[in-house]
Design a protein around this nucleic acid. Sequence first.
RNA 1: GCACGGAUGUCAGAGCGGCUAUGAGCGGGAUUGCAGAUCCUGAGACCUGAGUUCAAAUCUCAGUCCGUGCUCCA
Length: 493
Amino acid sequence: MPLRVHDTRRREKVDFTTMNPGVVNMYVCGVTVYDLCHLGHARCYLAFDLIHRWLEKSGYDVNYVQNFTDIDDKIIIRANETGEDWRELVENNIATYYRDMDALNILRADKYPRCTEFVDDMISITADLIEKGNAYAADDGVYFSVESAPEKYGLLTGQNIDAVRSGAGGRVDGTGSGKRDHKDFALWKAAKPGEPTWESPWGPGRPGWHIECTAMSMDSFGEQFDIHGGGHDLLFPHHEAEIFQGECHTGCSPVVHHWLHNGFVNIDGEKMSKSLGNFWTISDILEKVDPYVLRLSLINAHYRSPIDMNEQLLKDAEKNHTRLMGVYKAALELMGINCPPLPEGDITSQVPLVKSLGLLEKMAQGFAIAMDDDFNSREACAKVLGALREMSRMLGILEGDDLGAYAQHCVEWLEDTAGSVLGVLPTREQTLVEPEEDPRRAEIAQQVEELISRRSSARTAKDWPAADAIREELTALGVVVTDTTEGPIWDLL
RNA sequence: GCACGGAUGUCAGAGCGGCUAUGAGCGGGAUUGCAGAUCCUGAGACCUGAGUUCAAAUCUCAGUCCGUGCUCCA
């Protein structure tokens, strides 16, 4: 079945095609490294991580390029505020970026170009655009003239240039810029005192924001490539500017074959913003929430839909992840070695094992169909959750070689879906390792063991009031005790 | 104002012409002294109005409400 993706420019789901068979060139706008990464960044790079993983799973060789914007007004402003050298600020934030994304199990891109390494390319593209009549130099920099290619206006957002023309009269001034038209955007910014600068034919200065991505994507892929991604907010003006620059410079239309945009994250129904005080950095969240749980909560919605982050969502994700881990761990422990091969699955069979294998096969197909349908991770998660129930049930019924082989099948099934595609499964080793001794746990262990032993005696004597009283004592200590067939186990609340 | 997207049970959130998912929550059952966990199971929804169709949550039109963007925020 073919992979279909929603293309922002064409405004519909289209069959996914690549320029070179079996190869996908994908560019995703990266972060401007002036601050820590927040939940919105996590959503974005997680969305494209899932896309990256699924394309590879589908057999494509993916060249994934994601840039760092390492020179920008915000970086200069922040460096001035803190008194830090801007290069140091950039290095620190890039290091943190990697740390956060690694924690979320986001696979690394193949390349992370930095703007400052491609200033020469940006200058030559800018010069070419001037030569072609698409750009002009002014006192304070070089601007792209939108009216030089009006047919390219609004290709992503659908905005009508005539409406903008008539509605904007005279709004140009006030910006204090040499723009001829308010729709124009900067390709090159003349240096202001104290700013980092590069030499150019238009005097010292630095590149505009939009030209960076054009230069870096072209450096990696040439004049045309398969996927360009980014946050929904970049649609305008950033990505429309890229269309102007790239298509006027190369003469190719389109430069980008598929535009993909992810939806935003809201917090408790409100837009996440610093002014509302509901701004969550990834580091903040990971202090409270397991990275796999956060990951699961963020793939709980389709990548294009907005997602509302709240307690309920995290609670659901935590519960689901616990279920996933429970079944995965049980299957790993029950997995047999050298078991005889399993029969073919068949959902119409009366034999429970055969029927169950058939059901799992059907759910794996459903998983693939969902992912092929514009990377529908929500639907894919539903298939995994459905499979968990089936696995959990069967693992409790089967015995002997059937059990060992079935458990192994479950392990592989989960690793193939929840593991390598959704990225919410730790390694086998991590799953089987006993939880580390918490120092707080060690501190009270003796006392707790003693209480539990007394409670066990009370339970043997069927003295329930006494047993429950001891359990309340344990609760007061912050300990929860759970009775299992192998005896009571306890954990910190 | 213009543009784009959305409105599905208590909540989250898929489905996008015939059957509806999934998870949480709630109800019943099995297991357990109880609780928890696990398994089985039940109830409960498609914004409004019109149209197309044998058939509409799904397509069309209109309306209402909501979100986002409209110069550097993923």
